[in-house]
Amino acid sequence: MIHQILFIIFGVICVAGAVNLLVQRHPINSALSLVVVMGALALIYLLLGAEFVAAIQVIVYAGAIMVLFVFVIMLLNAGEEERSRGSHIALLLGVPGVIALGCLVAWTMLSHNTQLGGVRINTADFGATQPIARLLFRDFLLPFEITSVLILIAIMGAVVLGRRES
């Protein structure tokens, strides 16, 4: 019961943050809305019992990546965005598209409710640090390492692009 209430609260905060991200005209307000979304997501992970993922969500996304976003916005001193007058294509295609997508998702959820099933947590230490470490560093070690090499390549690419001028 209390889980459901908390889920609804954090879910609403999450969606409100996401909507606010699009509505706000100042980039720094948008970036901070995204931080709110990240925080609300972390709390939903916490409700699922995945406390390690929740903490990492806050440290990595809200604490590191979004700080860099805010940092860049501050450095560039980006001002308020101009609001466009609204194109007809967005109105003609966008609104029906969103309605159709919403209907499709809602219909799938409602009609295949029984087949989808819920999230089932099998072990008592689900979401704790040790099982996640076991998955990352034993069962899926190779994909994990390859991902880090990919990120390294991206960093090196950025350095090369940044130094080209001189």
């Binding site: 901070l32 931080v35 390690f52 903490a55 990492i56 806050v58 440290i59 809200a62 604490g63 590191a64 700080v67 805010v70």
Partner: peptide, 12 residues
């Protein structure tokens, strides 16, 4: 991790 997270949010 909560302490590290709180300090990293404190940067804001």
């Amino acid at each position: 991790l909560i302490i590290l997270g709180a300090t990293s949010i404190g940067v804001y």
